[in-house]
Design a protein around this nucleic acid. Structure first.
Length: 528
RNA sequence: GCGCUCGUAGCUCAAUGGUAGAGCGAGGGCCUUUUAAGCCCGAGGUUGUGGGUUCGAGCCCCACCGAGCGCACCA
């Protein structure tokens, strides 16, 4: 036999030798008049449906009232035992055992069973039964070959663990690791529940451009692409915000979009270059209404798909039950420095520019930075508002594990947000943090066209000063506000990060089916 | 971008600087209620790539490719 196997060449360069053996089996099927890739097979039940309908019956009941079914699936395990075989089928949703006896299916069909490998798809019709050990099975009367897998599946016990292969070849990951499928189904249900909650509140789902002539709505670097016919550069959107607010101007008072954003930044456990955001805008909402709605959406979706109890995440637990904590940014910072008497600032004194400047330059602050492994020198070049935001990010944000709305942001880093009516020094804005991640960002939308224009001009000056993430001037957006936008509140929610928490996935790559990776070595990009 | 760790058979993993192994899978044989079925036999490798050190390198050094984690930037 080994002589026969000599010179076996895989059908595709680089494929393992086993693929050549599997191809021979496919040809063996053809030689016996069996099509290895037939067009159609009609199932009477999915595998889970068989279990649901007959799983509770006893072997005797199944024998006295025989039920005939037609099932199909991928062969996950094969246990051949001479003149009988057991096969475990999976259709992704459920599994079911096939019991194949030579004296039931006939000699020819049983011989063809020898050409079936793990990974192949087969169909069977037969009667539902229970084995001696009580496992629900289908005793096959006829077998139908449905599809040949030329490549061998991963090892049956350990499955596929190589992270690189799991992400690059997600199809293999999905077929060999059931919990992966579960995470993505949960993600889908979560998005479905969010849509239902939005629809229930009479929000209209819309789609706005993914390619923007002026990237806007967030402070981030965009991807650049080019439109040949128009001969203009376009930018993959970093946020849909400015388009959605144009719709509010036009009278779509409640709009939302669940779609991808693209930001040209590093990859990490919390960052993928393209990620999914829910953004919603509602006329006559202010920041507080938006907070309430965001809380209801997240708590509601979590309760629906993951239950109302605390969820495990990154070795800890988190409860997404409402109400979430609320804290002013200055309070969070002062709290983070409470054990450091040298800091000596109170929430109010943080607003004192001269005092904060003195502290930032002090040896005490340099020591605090060393302890927190934070770059102190970076603070020296920052303006007051950015220092506040940086202090929060460096010293307070990481400790926010339970869901917490942080409010009262510096206006300077909030160019699209209204000021608080009762405190013009801060933006009427919040961000929601949980599990050390930012999950949502919302505010009372700035609708004064002339103040918006001034804010843009200020951003343009910062950009000229070297800030590549500062906002660009968008004259059409100013023109839209010029037609009048009602008082409006809006919010963006990071869908991937929420999905991470609801599926106990430590990396964003575990909730994105095809996360971005470097191109595989040796594969040249196609000529365009 | 920087730092640390990793890359060995189709898969999961071993191997003091001294003959590259095991389990699963695949191949041959036995087996009509198995459960990661079992038993017997034989096969399977350019140790990510390219250099270097050494009598001798999977192991040590350098570069490159890819991945994981951490930092930085961000949501």
């Amino acid at each position: 036999m080994s002589e026969e196997r000599e010179g076996l060449t895989p059908p595709v360069p680089g494929w393992p030798e086993e693929s050549a053996i599997r191809l021979q089996k496919a040809e063996g099927l053809r030689a016996a008049g069996v099509e290895p890739y037939p067009n159609r097979f009609v199932r009477s039940h999915s595998l889970a449906e068989v279990a649901a309908a007959w799983g509770a019956r006893t072997a005797e009941q199944l024998e006295s009232e025989p039920a005939t079914v037609q099932v199909a699936g991928r062969v996950m395990l094969l246990r051949p035992m001479g003149k009988a075989s057991f096969a475990t089928l999976s259709d992704g949703e459920g599994t079911l055992q096939l019991y194949i006896r030579k004296d039931e299916v006939g000699e020819d069909a049983f011989k063809l069973l020898g050409l079936v490998d793990r990974g192949d798809f087969v169909g069977a019709s037969g009667t539902v039964m229970k084995t001696r050990t009580g496992e629900l099975s289908v005793k096959a009367k006829t077998l139908t070959f449905l599809s040949k897998a030329l490549l061998p599946p991963p090892e049956k016990w350990h499955g596929l663990t190589d992270m690189e292969v799991r992400y690059r070849q997600r199809y293999v990951d999905l077929l060999s690791n059931p919990e992966v499928r579960k995470a993505f189904v949960t993600r889908s249900r979560m998005v479905g529940e969010i849509r239902r909650l939005m629809d229930e509140r009479r929000f209209v789902e819309v789609e706005t451009p993914m390619m923007h002539p002026i990237p806007g709505g967030a402070l981030a670097r965009p991807f650049v692409t080019h439109h040949n016919a128009l001969d203009v550069d376009l930018f993959m959107r970093i946020a849909p915000e400015l388009y959605l607010k144009r719709l509010v101007v036009g009278g779509l008072e409640r709009v939302y979009e669940i779609n991808r954003n693209f930001r040209n930044e590093g990859l990490s456990a919390n960052h993928n270059p393209e990620f999914t955001m829910l953004e919603f805008y509602a006329a006559y909402f202010d920041c507080r209404d938006v907070i309430d709605m965001t809380e209801a959406l997240i708590a509601g979706a979590a309760a629906k798909v993951a239950g109302d109890q605390p969820l495990p995440f990154r070795g800890r637990e988190v409860s997404l039950r409402a109400p979430f904590a609320r804290v002013r940014m200055n309070d969070a910072i002062a709290n983070a420095f409470a054990s450091d008497p040298a800091a000596g600032f109170t929430p109010d004194s943080l607003d004192d520019e001269a005092q904060l400047d003195a502290y930032v330059r002090s040896e005490a602050f340099a020591g605090a930075c060393r302890r927190a492994e934070v770059d102190r020198d970076g603070y020296l070049a920052l303006s007051h508002g950015k220092r506040i935001a940086q202090l929060f990010g460096d010293f307070a944000e990481k400790s926010l594990w339970a869901p917490t709305f942080v409010i009262d942001y510096p206006v300077e880093i909030s160019p699209l947000s209204k000021r608080r009516a009762d405190d013009k020094g801060v933006a009427d804005r919040f961000e929601l943090f949980m599990c050390g991640m930012e999950v949502a960002n919302g505010f009372s939308e700035l609708n004064d066209p002339l103040e918006q224009r001034e804010r843009f001009l200020d951003q343009v000056r910062q950009r000229a000063g070297g800030d590549g993430e500062a906002h660009l001037m968008d004259e059409d957006y100013i023109r839209a506000l010029g037609h009048g936008m009602p008082p409006t509140g809006g919010c963006g929610v990071g869908i991937d990060r929420l999905a991470m928490i609801l599926t106990n996935s430590p990396s964003i790559r575990d909730v994105i089916l095809f996360p971005h990776m470097r191109p595989e070595a040796g594969r040249k990009p196609p000529a365009v």
